[in-house]
């Protein structure tokens, strides 16, 4: 029971850090922290065997999204220079 509390509190803290941070590139590690914490919350929320599949799916999708944002941002800056 204490593990899901820790996951939820870490998610809210990392979400606040994402909002407070000014630099765009420094927001992305905290976004990954949010994704990991929500994946842990999903896996611990219900005592059902298929929950781990949903957690894996969310993990893969969120990592793909973060990588797409970072890749596009880096390519855009290189083209401007």
């Amino acid at each position: 029971m204490i593990a899901i509390y820790v996951c939820a509190i870490i998610a809210v803290y990392a979400g606040l850090r994402v909002v407070v941070e000014k630099n765009t590139m420094r927001k992305l590690p905290f976004l990954n922290v949010v994704s990991f914490a929500i994946s842990g919350t999903i896996a611990l929320l219900l005592p059902h065997p298929l929950t781990i599949l949903a957690a894996v799916a969310y993990f893969v999708g969120s990592t793909l999204e973060s990588n797409a944002i970072a890749s596009t941002w880096a390519g855009g800056i290189r083209r401007d220079d």
Binding site: S35, T41, T51, A54
Partner: peptide, 20 residues
């Protein structure tokens, strides 16, 4: 990036209803 934070808040509700 902020929209991704919003999407992260939706999934515990869907899981809690049992719609895996």
């Amino acid at each position: 990036i902020s929209l991704s934070v919003l999407i992260a808040g939706v999934f515990p509700f869907i899981i809690d209803r049992g719609y895996l």
